[in-house]
Structure formats: C-alpha cells, structure tokens
Design a binder for these strands. Structure first.
Length: 388
RNA sequence: GCAAGGGUGGUCGAGUGGUUAAUGGCACCGGGCUGUAAACCCGGCAGACGGAAGUCUUACAUAGGUUCAAAUCCUAUCCCUUGCA
C-alpha cells in the first residue's frame, strides 16, 4: 500500500488535473499550497483556511519548527497536526531552502549543514537524517528530501557538484525516512481507506538553469524512487525566462504518474505557465508576504494598497473576487488600515490574496477539464498584464 | 512689566561663522517582495532644468547690519515658553 494516491483526471496538452489522496485530505490538482512556515499561515486562522478558502494542504517548515518550539515539544504534543489543530494535509519543507536563504549563517559539507540559529545564534546541525527525524516528529503527510538549493546564475561545475550532493542526500534521506517509518516515529500516522497511513517522501530535482544538468538530476532522483517529484532551485534570482525554459524542458519529462511539485513558485502568471508545462503542485509565500506588506493580487494585476490613488477608492481589491474581504471592504478602507499600521490590513489582504491564488487554481482545473486551458491561459495572462 | 531661554524644511529635532540645500526620527510619496532571518526591505522627500554628472533660484521668525563667508555674530521688531511681579 502506498502513503498517497494520485490519479490524473483530465489532460489538456501537457496540463493535467488530478486527485491527490493523502491520509488526511483529498486534494484536487493543480493545487496551490499556502505556506505556513511556523505552524501558521501568517495572519490566517485555520477556520478561514478550512471554510471559506477551503485549502486542503499547507506547508510547514522543518528548520523553523525545529528552532521553535522545538521538536520535543511538538512530539510531546502529538505532532504538528494535533499541536496546531490543522487536520488536513501538511507538506513539510526539509530545511533545504534555508541552506540557500540563510547563507551567511551556515557551514556546509557532505555530512550536512551547520547553521547558526537566526533566532539566537546557537549552532545547529541539519542533515538528511536529522531533517527526516524532524519531519517524522512533525507528522506531515508529505516529507521533502533534504537538498541543497543554489542561488540562480551559478556555473555548470558548481551546479553539478551541488546536484550530485543533493542526490546523495536524497538517498540518505530516503534511507533514514524508511527507518523512521518502520520505527513508527511518524506522529501523523493514520490509516485511511487503502492508504498505508505512512508519510510520503518527495525527491527534488536541482540543476539551476542548465538543462542537461536538470536532466541528470531528474534521472538520479527518479532512480532513487519517490512518491512525488519536485523542481527546486527556481525563482532564486535567475532570469524569469530561464525558469520558463527549465519548466518547458523538464516539466513533462517528470514521471507522469506522480505529482509534480514546483517549489516556492510563484506569481499567478508563473502558476498558470507552470501548469501549462505539466506541474501539479505549488507553494509560495507571495500571497501572505505581499499581503502583509500591502501588495494585493487581482484579476487585473498587482496593486499596492499604499498608493495614494486608493485613498478614496470605494471599489473592492478585485471587483471580480467573491472573497469575504472583497464583498465587504473598500480599497480606501484597506489603505487606511495599512497606513495606520493596523494588523487587520495584513490579515484582510493576505486573506484576499490566498483566495485569489486558490481561486485561480480552481479556474485552472476547470479550464483543463473543459479542454479550454490554452484559451484560459491566454485570457488570464492578458487580463493580468493589463492593469493601470 | 522685568528676567531667562527660545523661534530651523509637513512635523519633532540636530547644527551655533566656512566640508550646510542643512544630521536623525516620524509623517508623506514611490518601488520591491517567488520551498518566509520579511507586519519587512530599498529609494525619494525646497523649487526649476537635465538621462546623468550637474547647473540655477529661493531657504533656517521678520527687517537691517558685520564679514571674503551667516541658520550660526550684532541691532531692531514680532511671536513663544518659564520664573518673578
């Protein structure tokens, strides 16, 4: 028995819809997963995620939860689901991205990465094994292998060395992961229908903007065999055209019968483009981070609620949006909340943004089912670049 | 009325003869944010011209003055604060 089940339900060009079943929820793909790094999607109560937004899966982060509150505490409280009360699916990132983003606070070698905690400077050592142990304690439905994520625009030699290490780390991740499953270290264990009740493990393809290396990484990763495959190392400073090039090249080469996950991406346009190239899963901090900092995504493109031009604007953030924020609050009011530093501004805009992302994916799925994805893509990109 | 201390750019507040179109903070304006060290970061903020380096004009209560040079020194006036009557 497998830990997850994924079936394609419709195909339109390279784009496809599917149903991903985990032990905790049923997820229609393509799916956008809100990011909940520290056990919370910043500014959004689970009630909203469950009810109005109807998110079926969110992210958590190994590194952050390891530092605070610490794994012992989470394990003692029964895992991240019980601790946080989020009962739908969780995907946990391995800390691999922090290898990239906390570059000043780390020392990296074959064995793993020594971090100085960004919280208090304590030395911590993260490795494939440790990452798997933490993710087992968190009890997420989908565990990510521990990888090295390079910045964009890195040369061929460095990229190759890195991707080879990532492949070795992937092997070690899987080895330790399976031990932990057998040891029943997974706090989220839950038997459901014909699933194993265990965690699923996804591999990560690296290779920066070098297509041949992407291919190499793909082969190495598939050879190890995972429950799903992710593309890492995109949108990390490289030209956007490089990301699209990599997606076009590698997207449809990834195993057809497993979910394909593009890590950390992206803008609404990126999502639609990636779906076009056969990607099924996404996560990104943009809706919540931009929401907190006054950036709203709309069907007419991005707006910045700080702009003086909204001071007396009675319209909602997006006149085409059905979310509870757009049904009730004007741009003028939201701008006022933002300008006066009211936390509600961040909450409401984040809420709207998440709605926009999730709703966009709903429309994407719809379009694929009706065989109209090309038209949808054209119209969507047209609308969104048409603002001001 | 007398005495003391003050009046600086939207605001608060540095500066007390030249490197000062004037430090900072706030406000304001704009930009950025892609597996969250992010309720954050960056930039602009007298006016005009310029792509820019820059040039010019007007500025530190008001009006005069001293000086090669003044927000800074002097004189007068107006206003504010505090104390004493």
């Amino acid at each position: 028995m497998k830990p997850i089940d994924w079936q394609v339900t419709a195909q339109n060009g390279k784009a496809r819809t599917g149903i991903l079943r985990t032990r905790r929820s049923e997820i229609e793909t393509p799916v956008f997963m809100p990011v909940g790094t520290q056990g919370t999607v910043k500014g959004i109560r689970y009630e909203w995620l469950e009810d109005e937004l109807d998110a079926r899966i969110i992210l958590g982060n190994t590194y952050h939860l390891w530092l605070r509150p610490g794994i012992e505490i989470i394990r003692n409280l029964g895992g991240l689901h019980k601790f946080s009360t989020w009962n739908r699916s969780l995907l946990t990132d391995s800390g691999g991205f922090q290898v990239f983003s906390l570059t000043d606070l780390r020392k990296l070698n074959e064995e793993g990465v020594e971090f100085r905690s960004h919280v208090d400077g304590t030395k911590m050592f993260l490795s494939p094994e440790v990452s798997m142990e933490i993710q087992a304690a968190l009890g997420s439905e989908i565990v990510m292998v521990f990888d090295e994520c390079l910045p964009g625009n890195v040369g061929v030699e460095e990229t190759r060395k890195s991707l080879e290490m990532t492949a070795r780390w992937a092997k070690r991740s899987k080895h330790r992961f399976e031990e932990l499953q057998n040891e029943k270290a997974d706090t989220g264990f839950l038997v459901k229908e014909n699933l194993s009740g265990r965690q699923a493990l996804f591999g990560i393809i690296q290779g920066a903007g070098h297509l041949n290396l992407r291919n190499e990484s793909l082969e190495k990763t598939v050879e190890i065999a995972f429950d799903g495959y992710a593309i890492g190392g995109l949108s990390v400073g490289e030209e956007k055209s490089i990301m699209y090039e990599v997606l076009e090249f590698i997207g449809s080469k990834m195993p057809e019968n497993s979910p394909r996950y593009l890590m950390g991406v992206g803008t609404p346009e990126d999502l639609v483009e990636a779906v076009y190239h056969g990607i099924d899963m996404f996560d990104c901090v943009m809706p919540t981070r931009n929401g907190r900092t006054g950036g709203a995504f709309t069907s007419q493109g991005k707006i910045n609620i700080r702009n003086a031009k909204f001071a007396q604007d009675k319209e909602p953030l997006d006149k085409n949006c059905q979310c509870s924020v757009c049904q009730r609050y004007s741009r003028a009011y939201l701008r006022h909340l933002y300008q006066t530093g009211e936390m509600l501004a961040s909450i409401l805009i984040s809420h709207h943004n998440l709605t926009f992302f999730l709703e966009t994916m709903r429309k994407v799925r719809e379009a694929i089912k009706f065989g109209e994805f090309s038209k949808f893509r054209r119209d969507f990109l047209d609308q969104i670049s048409n603002n001001d």
